[in-house]
């Protein structure tokens, strides 16, 4: 449970910020997906964008958790 929160919660906060900044600056109508203009509804684009940001941020948090070693683990012998 703790690990879930540590991965999902910080990534949620950062994804919310990324979403706001990204879509303020970029109009979803200007996006291209595999060379084709994005033709989803705007709400769908925003939602997929948010979930995408969340996924990427969560992947980053997951790596952090995976690589993280507590002091006691580092100092443990054998």
């Amino acid at each position: 449970m703790l690990k879930w929160i540590q991965v999902l919660w910080p990534s949620f906060l950062v994804a919310a910020m990324a979403e706001a900044v990204f879509f303020t600056v970029i109009d979803p109508q200007q996006l291209y997906l595999f060379g084709q203009p994005v033709d989803y509804g705007e709400l769908a684009t925003y939602s997929i964008g948010f979930l995408g940001f969340w996924l990427v941020c969560a992947a980053s948090s997951l790596c952090t958790i995976f690589l993280q070693r507590s002091a006691s683990e580092l100092n443990r012998r054998n």
């Binding site: 449970m1 703790l2 507590s70 006691s72 683990e73 100092n75 443990r76 012998r77």
Partner: peptide
Amino acid sequence: SSPSPQPKKSAKQSSSESSESLYE
């Protein structure tokens, strides 16, 4: 010198604390 059993035990304890009961 190898660490005495006592600190080793406490290190193990704190490790289990940090990985399991950080959120009591």
